[in-house]
Computed example of a mutant assay.
Amino acid sequence: MKTAIKLVLIYFVMQILAALLVMPFAMLYSYAVSGTIDAASVIALAPSMLLGFVGMGGYLWKKGYLKDDGRIWSPVSVAYLGWSIIIGLSTIFLIDFVMSRLSFLPDWMGATFDVLQSGWLGIICISVLGPVLEEMLFRGAITKVLLQRYSPVKAIILSALVFGIFHINPAQVAGAILSGGLFAWLYYRTGSLVPGILIHILNNSLSVFLSLHYPDVKYTSDLLGEPAYWSCLAVAAVLFAVSCKVMNSYRLPATDTTFKI
């Protein structure tokens, strides 16, 4: 756990350092355009996030978490990736149901996400670069270390909890714990980051799309309406169960991972 906590703290330090580096340039740009520096923090948000991602990715690579492992970037197989999409979509729907029951939780990051989604760089950071970096950090580094020190069940649970707490925002924590458990299990089963990255990008991209095109819709039930929503929820539960069974029994090449959820 010490390594997990250390890596998370390093990530936050990277983001702070990136913000400090970007802010002077953002202030100059803001002043040149508008004559004030009032918009500097908004201008700096996406670039500093990107710079922080690059810094953390470089750190993970330099420390050997992302290399010397032939399987970490393996696509596994077409069939496995197909089932990953199915389990990912069903999980997204089921987590949406859980979060709709936790709507009382405050959303501390709503304004920040609105700013990020107002520009193409912020959208790319949320929908693509963020998922890739988080999978490298939380599965390629943290889950890998936890699996070396604890039983698979304990390692996956701890990884999910760390991933959830990392998000800080109360409105995101529960959903992040649930999705983090899935991502950690996929990494344990395959030794690859690709299935988790695929689902993570799908999740975040859908979130951005819905936020931009349906800003007044908070949950899927609001978008679909009650009859259709409950039918889709039932289908999602069935698909989740079926995909879990298939992926648990799927024979992966050159692996002895046999943990079942």
Rank of each mutant, 00 (worst) to 15 (best):
M109T: 14
I85M: 06
I43N: 09
G55F: 14
W61T: 15
W83N: 06
S34A: 14
Q117W: 06
D68L: 01
G35R: 10
S77T: 15
P24V: 11
Y59N: 03
V33Y: 08
V33S: 13
L81T: 06
A26V: 12
I85R: 02
L51Q: 04
P75Y: 02
L50E: 07
V42P: 01
V98Y: 00
S100I: 11
G58W: 01
W61G: 15
A26C: 08
L105G: 05
I87A: 03
Y29R: 02
F97I: 08
W61Q: 02
A44T: 08
W108V: 09
F93V: 13
Q117C: 07
F104T: 05
I95G: 04
G35V: 11
K62V: 10
S118D: 02
I92Y: 06
L94T: 04
Y29C: 11
S34G: 13
L94I: 11
V78P: 01
M99N: 15
F104R: 00
A46M: 02
V33M: 13
G35E: 09
L116G: 06
S118G: 14
L60Y: 07
V76F: 08
W73G: 09
G52K: 01
G82L: 08
S118F: 04
S41M: 12
V115M: 12
M56I: 12
G70N: 03
A40H: 07
M109R: 07
A44I: 00
S103M: 12
V33Q: 10
L94V: 11
G88H: 12
I95A: 08
W108E: 13
M99D: 15
F25A: 14
L45Y: 06
M49G: 11
A39C: 04
A46V: 05
V78S: 11
A46F: 00
G57Y: 07
L50T: 14
L89M: 10
L102Y: 03
I37G: 05
S103V: 09
L94G: 02
T112R: 06
S74F: 11
M109I: 12
L60D: 06
I72K: 01
L81W: 05
I87V: 15
G35Y: 13
I85H: 01
R71I: 03
S34Q: 14
L60Q: 04
L50D: 02
L102Q: 00
S74A: 12
G55C: 13
L94Q: 00
K67G: 02
L60T: 14
M56E: 05
F113T: 12
R71E: 09
M56A: 04
P106L: 06
I72M: 03
A44P: 00
G119E: 10
T91F: 04
A40W: 03
P47Y: 10
A79F: 00
I95V: 15
F113E: 07
W108F: 15
L81D: 07
G52V: 13
M99Y: 06
L102W: 01
F104E: 08
G64T: 13
G58T: 02
I87T: 14
S100K: 10
S48V: 12
V42L: 10
A44V: 05
Y29T: 04
A44S: 04
G35Q: 12
S84E: 00
G64I: 02
W73F: 15
I87W: 05
S48L: 08
F104A: 06
F25M: 14
L45G: 01
Y65F: 07
F113Q: 05
A111T: 14
G82C: 06
G52C: 10
D69P: 01
L28T: 10
G119P: 00
F93Y: 13
I72C: 04
L50I: 11
Q117M: 15
W108I: 08
